[in-house]
């Protein structure tokens, strides 16, 4: 994956948080994930990629961050676990789907897969890039593994 392609996901993530909350996310310096690294927080939303690119994109977030987002969108300060999972999937879906503006209509995305509260070992194409995200003091990670 080229730097320009990686930039698509950086910009998509900044735009997502800005549009939804009025506060853009701050993106950290991306790094390449080593095989043994575990990049996993409370809630993870993963999207499979097929078509002209193959791989996986996932975002992994603390539940407090997702709770705050649901609060902003719905005004619901005490969302249930199902709503938090749903929200996490929707973040991943939107960031991956928006990337079609650059990758084109043959960049096919799956419905979101949600993983709650356990370490994840998704088979992701190497090299896998980890992009640290900070939004309103919450730290999360976008992980992008797409074959060149």
């Amino acid at each position: 994956m080229t730097d320009k392609e990686l930039q698509v996901f950086l910009e998509g993530t900044v735009n997502y948080f800005h549009e939804v909350s009025g506060t853009p996310a701050a993106m950290g310096v991306p790094y390449i994930k080593e095989t043994q690294d575990e990049v996993s927080l409370d809630l993870t939303g993963a999207i499979g990629i097929s078509g002209n690119k193959k791989g996986v994109i996932y975002i992994t977030c603390p539940s407090l961050m997702v709770k705050e987002l649901v609060g902003i969108i719905l005004g619901d300060g005490n969302p249930d676990s199902g709503s938090l999972c749903d929200m996490t999937g929707e973040i991943a879906n939107t960031i991956a789907g928006n990337a079609r503006q650059v990758f084109g209509a043959n960049f096919m995305i799956s419905v979101p897969i949600i993983i709650e509260g356990k370490p994840i070992h998704l088979k992701v194409a190497a090299p896998t890039f980890v992009i640290p995200i900070t939004w309103r003091s919450h730290k999360s990670f976008l992980v992008v593994g797409i074959e060149s």
């Binding site: 789907g97 928006n98 079609r100």
Partner: peptide, 25 residues
Amino acid sequence: TALTDNATGLRALKLGARNFLGKPF
């Protein structure tokens, strides 16, 4: 939809959609 590329928008309109809005909104 989150699929905000022009080709998808055009396809939806050709199939009979009257409007197209990208996520997030």
